[in-house]
Simulated scan of single mutants.
Amino acid sequence: MSLPASVFAQQLTLMQLSDSFFPSGSFTLSHGLESLVQENQLRGSEDLQTFLRLLLRNKVGVTDTVALIHAYRGSAIADLEAVRTADARLFAQTLVEKTRETQRKSGRALLMVASSTWQDSQLDILNQDAAIGKINCLHPVVFAVVGRAALLSEQDTVLGFLHSFVTGLLGAAIRLSVVGHLQAQRVLLQLAPEIETAYHTAASMSLEQMWSCTPTIDIAQMRHQKLAQRLFAS
């Protein structure tokens, strides 16, 4: 049985947004992975899985994803003040300066590309807000509004975001020779339950409940800019 045209289009949009082919800049980030690899603190697929699980459970799943969900819900009822609040709370929660900077850059790149791809008044307003410094335009928050503008559900928007986050890091791990392509595919499959859990956990949290605890990864991100050679922006 073929799918209704609207469902088919939504699935294609989900794949478009979560694909590395989409030029948001988020796939140039290693989130501290490059530092850990160069310092010989992370080797092989088991270490990589631990790294990704820690990020999903103790950082991205309980900060970025929470802000994304609240931004999506605000956007869905045309409450852009709720979107701005989610952006401001996530900015305050993101303690590493380099992470805030890269989140802002990739968010604004995503907004630019999305504005030329989907016609949506909220995207136009966010562009105006960004121009006058009214919003940081952090990547998860912009991704939420883009998902809503592209007619994706909240769940699909979150899963698209988390899938692109994980595959971006797996791509980084391949480029850093931590794993090969076949190992990366196995890791991605094994992380599917973690991604689902991250969504359900974040969906039940308020902005005030956001938290993170990944000290080793945070410090690795801070050290990244001092590496003699770098493939990634963070």
Results as ranks from 00 to 15, higher is better:
residue 78 A to L: 14
residue 219 I to K: 11
residue 175 R to D: 12
residue 123 L to G: 04
residue 196 E to S: 13
residue 108 R to V: 03
residue 164 S to T: 01
residue 78 A to T: 10
residue 183 Q to A: 15
residue 17 L to W: 03
residue 86 A to Q: 04
residue 67 A to H: 06
residue 160 G to P: 03
residue 177 S to Q: 13
residue 230 R to A: 05
residue 156 D to H: 04
residue 11 Q to R: 14
residue 133 G to I: 03
residue 23 P to V: 01
residue 178 V to Q: 06
residue 22 F to W: 11
residue 202 A to N: 06
residue 116 S to Q: 12
residue 158 V to Q: 01
residue 192 A to C: 08
residue 127 N to T: 00
residue 234 S to A: 14
residue 29 L to Q: 10
residue 51 F to K: 08
residue 2 S to E: 14
residue 21 F to C: 12
residue 103 Q to D: 14
residue 154 E to A: 10
residue 231 L to R: 13
residue 182 L to A: 15
residue 227 L to H: 01
residue 149 A to C: 04
residue 37 V to I: 10
residue 129 D to V: 02
residue 43 R to F: 11
residue 61 G to S: 08
residue 226 K to V: 10
residue 205 M to I: 08
residue 77 I to A: 02
residue 50 T to V: 11
residue 139 H to R: 06
residue 29 L to M: 07
residue 24 S to G: 15
residue 178 V to D: 07
residue 46 E to Q: 15
residue 11 Q to A: 13
residue 227 L to M: 04
residue 182 L to W: 11
residue 196 E to G: 06
residue 213 C to P: 00
residue 191 L to K: 09
residue 187 V to C: 10
residue 189 L to I: 12
residue 19 D to A: 12
residue 110 L to I: 01
residue 46 E to M: 12
residue 18 S to C: 01
residue 173 A to K: 05
residue 210 M to S: 07
residue 209 Q to P: 02
residue 19 D to I: 03
residue 204 S to H: 12
residue 133 G to S: 05
residue 118 W to P: 06
residue 168 G to R: 03
residue 19 D to M: 04
residue 183 Q to I: 03
residue 204 S to Q: 15
residue 31 H to Y: 15
residue 114 A to K: 07
residue 94 T to V: 02
residue 218 D to R: 02
residue 3 L to A: 10
residue 135 I to S: 11
residue 224 H to M: 06
residue 6 S to T: 14
residue 197 T to E: 14
residue 158 V to D: 00
residue 14 L to Y: 07
residue 192 A to P: 05
residue 6 S to P: 00
residue 177 S to V: 00
residue 57 R to W: 07
residue 59 K to I: 01
residue 120 D to W: 03
residue 69 I to R: 00
residue 221 Q to N: 06
residue 99 T to V: 15
residue 105 K to I: 15
residue 231 L to C: 10
residue 144 A to E: 08
residue 214 T to M: 06
residue 67 A to Y: 03
residue 151 L to P: 00
residue 201 T to D: 13
residue 148 R to I: 04
residue 13 T to S: 10
residue 9 A to C: 01
residue 27 F to R: 02
residue 39 E to H: 12
residue 161 F to P: 03
residue 186 R to N: 12
residue 215 P to W: 09
residue 84 R to N: 09
residue 91 F to D: 11
residue 145 V to Y: 11
residue 63 T to L: 04
residue 224 H to P: 01
residue 127 N to H: 03
residue 160 G to C: 09
residue 45 S to D: 13
residue 128 Q to I: 05
residue 190 Q to N: 12
residue 103 Q to G: 10
residue 216 T to S: 13
residue 153 S to T: 15
residue 114 A to Q: 10
residue 141 V to K: 05
residue 142 V to H: 01
residue 58 N to V: 09
residue 66 V to E: 09
residue 133 G to L: 04
residue 90 L to K: 09
residue 41 Q to K: 15
residue 204 S to Y: 08
residue 77 I to F: 01
residue 221 Q to A: 08
residue 97 E to G: 04
residue 108 R to W: 02
residue 148 R to T: 04
residue 57 R to E: 15
residue 113 V to M: 10
residue 32 G to S: 06
residue 171 G to M: 02
residue 223 R to T: 02
residue 120 D to G: 02
residue 224 H to L: 00
residue 127 N to Q: 14
residue 29 L to I: 11
residue 43 R to T: 14
residue 82 A to D: 08
residue 84 R to W: 05
residue 222 M to I: 13
residue 234 S to K: 10
residue 49 Q to P: 00
residue 118 W to I: 02
residue 56 L to P: 07
residue 30 S to E: 04
residue 35 S to C: 08
residue 120 D to E: 04
residue 122 Q to K: 12
residue 8 F to V: 06
